[in-house]
Computed example of a mutant assay.
Amino acid sequence: MSQPAEADALVIGGGIVGAACAHEMARRGLRVRVLDNASGGATGAGMGHLVAMDDNPAELALSHYSIGLWNQLRTRLPAACAYRNCGTLWLAADNAEMDLARAKQAALAEHGVAGELLDGAALGALEPMLRKHLGGALKIPGDGILYAPATAHWLLHETPGVSCERATVRAIAAHRVELDDGRVLRAEYVVLANGLAARDLLPALPLRAKKGHLLITDRYPRQVSHQLVELGYAASAHASNGTSVAFNVQPRPTGQLLIGSSRQFDTLDPAIDADVLAPMLQRAVAYLPGLAQLNGIRAWTGFRAATPDGLPILGRHPQEKGLWLAVGHEGLGVTTAPGSGRLLASLMLGERPDIDAFAYRPERFATLAALPPAPGTAP
């Protein structure tokens, strides 16, 4: 049974990206209704880092822009969001990798991201738990961390004009959402922002699952002050095949250490895979030998939604004019959520976005740009 429009926009997905989209649309005066099945998704499983990533210019533009927006929100975030401006140390394993650090510093500086090169001695003084004789590091002081589930909840429930409903969506179309209880909701704008699950509603989306493992330790007196990432992390993060691990450790405000990271393709099995978790932890201990003496209290997995080119899909569906897409953020959904939300809202309302939206356009993928078959014809 069709119901009259109760909102100007319907957002499918209440994770960090959907919440940011809802927040931005409501800021512009739209009535926004968020539909979420409470599965948690990637928002409930990720690390929650806010990191300027520079694998390509479009990735850096969106991540740097988004960190600036997080900085505008940071004083309003409640304690439960656990925001910390801890910065990131990109670690060079040896002197040869310091060349990578210098190149990264230059690339980030071109986009206004400040960075400081540290030699091995300075690095050891900052983070004495690291193994001795590392080559040094690039320090990015503007990076931070937050607790993404609490932050998404805050954006959804403390933004005037946003309402939330626990619901499972069965089908979507331009201006129309059908729920599994038979209700049909209508709105001027329908936003698909539910990560990997978006494939179930729009199979043409070129999204691929990347499974990841994380482990968190017990609480200890402060062991690490910065987010620690090896310089080889980007190669692992953007690999397109196989299984890979990289060193990534994040200090939580609780005194715990959150340990990552791994990537596996083409599996939707949520079970812990010892053949992946073990080398991930071995990699972590190789950089932080003292980790071997700490208790790990929980390990879990999650699934990132990756596009073929590693960039999110942000914009209007080429063939469904009332349907808007905010998916495919892979491992940068928390970092890039506010930028994605603001960019999408600007495009919806005919505003000029603060950054160039061309690289994220949905029609760059043939499966989305192709015209649907005419009625009555064979597919």
Rank of each mutant, 00 (worst) to 15 (best):
D218T: 11
E230Q: 14
M25W: 13
L117Q: 09
A246F: 13
D269F: 08
M47C: 10
H329K: 01
K104E: 08
V34T: 10
N37G: 01
G333T: 10
D309C: 12
F265R: 07
A197D: 14
N71Y: 05
P57I: 08
A246M: 00
I272W: 07
S262W: 06
I355M: 10
P289G: 00
L100I: 09
L192D: 08
Q72H: 13
G161D: 11
L108W: 13
N56G: 13
A278F: 01
A198G: 07
L311F: 03
E116R: 15
G142N: 12
G142M: 12
G310H: 06
M98A: 01
D55P: 02
L126C: 14
H213S: 09
E59I: 05
R316K: 11
D8K: 02
A357I: 05
L62N: 08
Q250T: 15
P203E: 11
G302S: 10
L201Q: 07
R27P: 05
R176F: 01
N295W: 01
A101Y: 00
A45H: 08
R361L: 09
P353C: 11
A114V: 12
P149A: 09
A26D: 07
E158Y: 02
G255R: 10
L277D: 01
E178K: 05
A197G: 15
D54A: 15
L368T: 07
G87D: 04
E230V: 04
A357C: 07
V113H: 00
Q3N: 05
G331Q: 10
A374G: 04
L258R: 03
G87P: 06
A22R: 05
A239S: 15
H226I: 06
A326M: 06
L258V: 00
A52Q: 14
L205R: 04
L155K: 06
G115Y: 03
E127R: 06
G68Q: 10
S262F: 03
A42I: 02
P308D: 09
L228I: 12
R33W: 06
L332E: 07
P206F: 09
L35H: 07
L281T: 00
A22K: 04
V184R: 14
D99N: 10
T217I: 10
V169I: 14
L179A: 12
Q282A: 13
